[in-house]
């Protein structure tokens, strides 16, 4: 079943045509890698699929519903309820501890402080990061930051996990470990995973690759 779909979407930034009519369809439970050289439009595609930004033309559908026409508040709710997002450098709140960062999406969703902290610790443990639960982001290594960021992305049990170069700042063994934890947790959760990467070894963890070149899907390779 198609869970997420972009239909001929276009996006420009000033004079740059970042996406030129891209169409992709992602099945429920798939792990898909979106690859392509720097500036190919792969991150823009992820941002459009995840409702972070809206394309100027074309449509984005999630779970049978068009999402690119939703207003900002509705898209924020959708991201909070159904999506988990991991960025290259974690993007954690620097003033909060690791466990507070992971608990944040649960608190936004109205869960109590104590319950949120308990669930957050459980996720840190699953990401092999419980030992840094009370540390602030500034005190963490790159690998630890990403584990915490992944725990935060997975804590709400999202239907789709979007990851934009999740191992880009890590060396290959640390990256492999972190990616393995993410994919295993997503598998257990039954989450669909959309990975943006320029790293072929990361792409090799996916079931399927979508190659983006010059703002277009150059070939959907099974």
């Amino acid at each position: 079943m198609t869970l997420l779909e972009a239909r001929r979407i276009e996006k420009t930034f000033g004079r740059t045509h970042a996406l030129r009519g891209v169409s992709v369809a992602i099945e429920s439970g798939e792990v898909v890698a979106i690859t392509g050289p720097s500036g190919s439009g792969k991150s823009t595609l992820l941002h459009c699929l995840s409702g972070i930004m809206c394309p100027e033309a074309g449509e984005v559908h999630y779970d049978g519903r068009r999402i690119d026409t939703l207003d900002e508040a509705a898209r924020t709710r959708l991201r909070r309820d159904a999506f988990g997002i991991v960025f290259q450098f974690g993007r954690l709140v620097p003033e909060l501890t690791a466990v507070e960062n992971v608990a944040l999406p649960l608190l936004f969703n109205g869960d109590g402080r104590e319950k949120s902290a308990t669930v957050a610790r459980d996720w840190l443990e699953r990401m092999d990061a419980l030992d840094v639960a009370d540390a602030r982001p500034g005190e963490l290594s790159g690998g630890q930051l990403q584990r915490v960021a992944m725990a935060r992305a997975l804590v709400t049990g999202p239907k789709v996990v979007f990851a934009d170069e999740p191992t880009g700042a890590l060396d290959s063994l640390a990256g492999e470990k972190v990616l393995g934890l993410l994919l295993e947790a997503a598998r257990v959760n039954g989450s669909t995973v959309v990975l943006v990467t320029h790293d072929n070894q990361v792409a090799a963890h996916a079931d399927r690759e979508i190659v983006v070149r010059d703002g277009a899907a150059a070939g959907v390779v099974a």
Partner: peptide
């Protein structure tokens, strides 16, 4: 593109 797909398929197996 075809060569890329073949290489990546082998990388997936490995």
């Amino acid at each position: 593109l075809r060569q890329r797909a073949a290489h990546l398929e082998r990388m997936r197996e490995l």
